[in-house]
């Protein structure tokens, strides 16, 4: 266990820039943009009756707050927190994608694998430490940074609201919203982990197996297969369209590192998109976890674990150092 935690630490040392600084810098840029937006709004809309921040009429809050409006304001604040994390998670997906491609390849290329292999660490632990880094460490860092940035954003909004005679402070700290959001985001981690497994497995397998250009292999194999399937309408044999193949094989192998991707596979989530409030409701944790009943989740996770197992085998038997 001690060895394993040091292996994770090792991954963090090596990828400090993409694991830690990328989300921190992105969050800082977003906060700066938000601040600039608020200042611009204040300067140009001075004296205007309604200043809108994150879809909420600030002046309105000060005057009449019905229960429904209160709920809307809360939802708006929640969405603003979610939106920061949303942007960060896109960055995270790109980071994880390229991290996995290089994880078992870069050290073979620069031959530092000979140093790692001269230490009493099994190939299994080495590969698993990379899986955990990609599926737990990076999402945790991203979400923590997202939460801190989201809270900072709420504080900015609340300060602005104060100038307009509205008191959002009590709402921020007494209403369940921000804390509910934090819990919500943290609770997403197991889903992100399960969902990402097929892509992580595929990329690590390419990374462990390719003699050169793992990126090309990772992309060419599923996309090439997809083109062949579409071209010959092979899926007709199983009474499925080739779209099914693109959606459930190709996309799952390459794009599952994007958190929340499962929503695209669950039609029930977007049943009520007619109003923003309905969309907001559909993003609730209950809905997210309801996605777990999809076989998509579990079949993908099993395929991912199989590919990770194969990557461990390749790591031990690939002999090109």
């Amino acid at each position: 266990m001690k060895t394993f935690s040091w292996l994770i630490k090792r991954e963090f040392w090596e990828h400090r820039g993409s694991f830690f600084w990328a989300p921190v810098i992105t969050a800082c840029v977003m906060l700066a943009l938000n601040l600039m937006g608020i200042i611009t709004g204040e300067v140009f809309l001075r004296g205007h009756p309604s200043v809108m921040v994150d879809g909420t009429h600030l002046d309105m809050i000060g005057h009449y707050l019905t229960a429904e409006q209160l709920r809307q304001v809360g939802a708006g604040l929640d969405m603003s927190m979610l939106s920061v994390t949303g942007v960060l998670s896109t960055i995270m997906a790109i980071v994880v994608f390229f991290y996995c491609l290089g994880a078992l390849y870069d050290d073979r290329r620069d031959r530092s694998i000979l140093f790692w292999k001269s230490l009493p660490i099994s190939d299994r632990d080495t590969v698993l430490s990379k899986v955990i880094s990609a599926t737990v460490l990076v999402p945790v860092i991203t979400i923590v940074v997202g939460i801190l940035a989201g809270l900072s954003m709420l504080v900015m909004v609340a300060i602005t609201a104060t100038f307009h005679g509205a008191n959002l402070w009590t709402m921020l700290w007494t209403a369940p919203h921000p804390f509910q959001m934090i819990a919500h985001l943290l609770a997403m981690i197991p889903l992100i982990f399960l969902w990402a497994l097929p892509t992580i497995g595929w990329l690590l397998l390419c990374s462990a197996a390719a003699r050169s250009k793992p990126f090309l292999w990772a992309l060419a194999v599923p996309v090439g297969a997809g083109i062949i399937v579409s071209w010959f309408s092979l899926m007709g044999v199983f009474n499925l369209s080739s779209t099914w193949f693109w959606q459930h094989i190709v996309a799952r192998m390459l794009l599952s590192v994007f958190p929340g991707g499962w929503m695209a596979y669950d039609p029930s989530i977007f049943q009520h998109t007619e109003s923003p409030m309905a969309l907001y409701d559909s993003l609730s944790l209950g809905h997210m976890y309801a996605s777990l009943v999809q076989p998509e989740f579990w079949v993908g996770a099993i395929a991912g674990i199989a590919m990770i197992t194969l990557a461990i085998f390749m790591r031990g038997h690939r002999d090109d150092s």
């Binding site: 040392w13 031959r111 530092s112």
Partner: peptide, 26 residues
């Protein structure tokens, strides 16, 4: 038993095999 063996065996393979990003303290 490579991982078990490596508790008793050390090797220096060639010069440039230490990972380039690593610090002495790390």
């Amino acid at each position: 038993h490579r991982d078990r063996l490596m508790r008793e065996v050390c090797f220096i393979a060639d010069v440039a095999v230490l990972p380039r990003w690593m610090r002495v303290s790390e």
